[in-house]
Write a protein that binds this DNA or RNA. Structure first.
Lengths: 170, 170
DNA sequence: TATTGTTATACTCTATAACTATA
DNA sequence: TATAGTTATAGAGTATAACAATA
């Protein structure tokens, strides 16, 4: 229950008591640390909420991208999400084996497989959207509309120059 | 290079051109999506920057927490980072096998192992901090001090009620 | 030559369950 | 009974490299 580590406070601003969190030390000054913690918090709530459906955040994003861009290729989705082709392949395989999407060879470019939601996929996506909305609200409700807009703008600033991962040399 | 998918724009605000990113559709309204993209952007830059040292973000955080809380136990670190005990175990094993930290049985509570940085661990942490600082700056430089403070406050709001994962029933 | 899909391998992280020794 | 550490297993994501078919 309690820690035996309640000694050696680093400074007066950072004393801790039994049962309190650890000193975060230098981590507290690191943007990436807070970003990761926020991501973990959302990931955990998302996963718990989505339990029955069993769609990961990435899988959900892929289904949404296919819904918004029918007949999109794996590589375009991968680039959009800054994922590797091979990772995308594995992810699409999983969704295909659950019959949530299908691959169709492109008539224009025969290297390509076009991705389409199945009826089951569209149905699952619909259910997932509802759950996601509830989940989302548990976090967005902590912000005023103006705050939220500004916050999301900050997030976009962080990933503004994110790199497509399947471009050049291989 | 180009996509063959340049048809069926969803609406006038969302037309896309050849070579442009996909339509993100509903994803654009999802806080968790932007948070994950921001996290991916930082993760990729971090990983590239930390290449030679080979410390993951989590491993770096664990070393920092040990540095700030000498003789801390695995479970306290796990709770602080909202990680599972078993995951923490594996992570500490990796760091121990690289001689970056050592486990010492607690004289007070013999169930516990106290964690301490080795000299090599302290040295690696020092190097990692320098690299991390350069990396960090590539993102924080996009914010004014006031913007950054507000942005981080938002992140903290998101993970304010994050759950310790090793508390109750198991 | 470059691109898309594909397969294979290896590592990390995550989640769960169970066991042990200690409290 | 509950806790800390431990072990084992399985699924998911990530990174890299290579190959075939096609552009």
């Amino acid at each position: 229950m309690t820690r035996h580590n309640d000694l050696k406070p680093a400074n007066d601003d950072d004393v801790f008591e039994v049962g309190s969190p650890l000193r975060t030390g230098r981590l507290d000054d690191i943007l990436g640390f807070h970003l990761r913690m926020a991501n973990v918090a959302i990931y955990q709530d998302y996963t718990a909420a989505m339990g029955d459906i069993g769609l990961t955040q990435k899988q959900f994003a892929v289904l949404e991208l296919i819904a918004a861009n029918p007949r999109v290729s794996q590589i375009d989705i991968a680039n959009q999400l800054s994922m590797d082709r091979a990772t995308m392949m594995a992810l699409v395989n999983r969704l295909e084996s659950r019959d949530l999407l299908e691959r169709q060879p492109s008539p224009i470019d025969r290297r390509r497989q076009e991705l389409l939601l199945t009826e089951a996929g569209a149905e699952v996506l619909k259910q997932a959207r509802n759950i996601q909305q509830q989940h989302e609200l548990r976090f967005t409700s902590r912000f005023s509309p103006e705050e939220l807009e500004q916050f999301i703008e900050g997030l976009k600033r962080v990933y503004a120059d994110i790199i497509p991962r399947n471009s050049q040399t291989d």
